[in-house]
Simulated scan of single mutants.
Amino acid sequence: MSIPSQSFEQYTVAFYNVENLFDVVDDPHVFLDEDFTEFGRKNWTENRYLKKLSKISDAISKIGFESTGKLPAIIGLAEVENKKVLNDLIQQPKLVNTKYDFIHYNSPDERGIDVALLYDTTVFKPTHSEPLHIHLEDEKGVRDTTRDILYIEGTLAGTPVHVYINHWPSRRDGANATNDKRLSVANQLMSHVGHKDPNSKRNENHLSKEDAHHIIIMGDFNDDPDNDSIKKGILPHGFDNPTASLKNFHRGSLNHNFKWNLFDQIMISKSLHNDVPNSLYFHKADIFDDIMLRQWKGKYRGQPARTFSGRNYKGGYSDHFPVFAVFRKN
């Protein structure tokens, strides 16, 4: 007889690319920021901004809820503009009663979009955070700016964890032409992992909660699980990709030209497959692709209900579905 899930102490870890969560104020230091103003190319009004906040907060409040009965413990976010939008987000009615706080650093990305972490302060206790600056150069040796990786150390339900939140270089100039950029980011990420865990404790699943080195890598990698940056750049260094099996012909976290991709992924160190007393361990992963987040009709039926299609305002949630993992406590 199966044991009811309510018998376990469970926590949701999620990642969500929220598709250009900008406020309505023009920041002169941001290249494309003026597009997201009332008289900019996107005609981004206060009403549209508030509607976006409401929808994103509604989605976050439901990620993993069927499994755990509570809101996510931590949520990595991509495509947020600044601290203001994060503060406005956690003040939304669907989130305000959960004691969320956030960690965010401005990055050098020319679009003005960053990654961030939302976390339930009653469950996750950060002890250190920093942006990991990514160094890329074009063929002429000129610095190519991209998003920083956000690194956070802390305890999740009492278990020490190391969390990396990523948004890797896009495929805008072609997947093959930009492949080396994502491979370079993977190498720089693994260099930091090796520096923090020189004894490769991430590979061990029998160490005590205090001695283990548990790592969660999440993000929009702009690559699928079978691409080199993931398959060769990360997994051989002591990691599993529990989200990889979620991708198939009919399912993914985003859809481009009627083809599903799973750019949004959560990878975990092998140490999180354990039966160590009082430690967290991985239980399952999924895509939160509920009907509420989908296009309901037309030729794009079933795809993510996005906020914009080009310059055309659609009023949806995001062009990505969130992904999540559920962890249980031994």
Score class of each variant (00 low, 15 high):
D290W: 02
N166W: 00
H133L: 08
L53W: 05
N199I: 09
N199Y: 11
F327I: 06
E34N: 15
V24E: 11
F15P: 05
G174N: 13
I74P: 07
R311K: 14
K83G: 11
D220S: 11
V163L: 15
E153W: 07
V323D: 04
E46C: 07
G219V: 10
A305K: 13
M1C: 14
H167Y: 12
F324C: 00
L235F: 07
P225K: 06
A175G: 07
E153C: 12
P160M: 04
G40L: 03
M218G: 03
I74A: 08
T12F: 06
Y119H: 12
V276L: 07
E110Q: 14
L89P: 01
L136W: 05
A305L: 15
V115R: 04
I56R: 12
Q91K: 15
Q10G: 06
D101W: 02
I3H: 04
G238C: 03
P225M: 08
H195I: 11
P277V: 03
V276P: 01
S318T: 05
G64H: 04
S7K: 09
D228C: 08
V193P: 08
T145H: 14
M267A: 07
I287E: 07
G219C: 08
K181N: 07
H135A: 13
P93H: 04
V193G: 08
G315P: 05
V25Y: 14
I3M: 06
K247F: 04
E9V: 13
N20G: 13
I90T: 06
Y317T: 01
D197C: 09
R301V: 06
G298D: 12
N227H: 12
K140H: 15
A244I: 05
F39M: 14
P72L: 02
G233T: 03
R251Y: 09
L183T: 03
G40S: 06
D148M: 11
M1D: 12
E66A: 12
P169M: 12
L86N: 05
E130K: 11
H133V: 09
R182Y: 01
L189K: 03
K83V: 09
L132G: 01
T146N: 05
P198K: 06
T146L: 06
F321M: 00
N179Y: 12
A186P: 03
D228S: 14
M292C: 11
L32T: 15
I152W: 02
L262C: 01
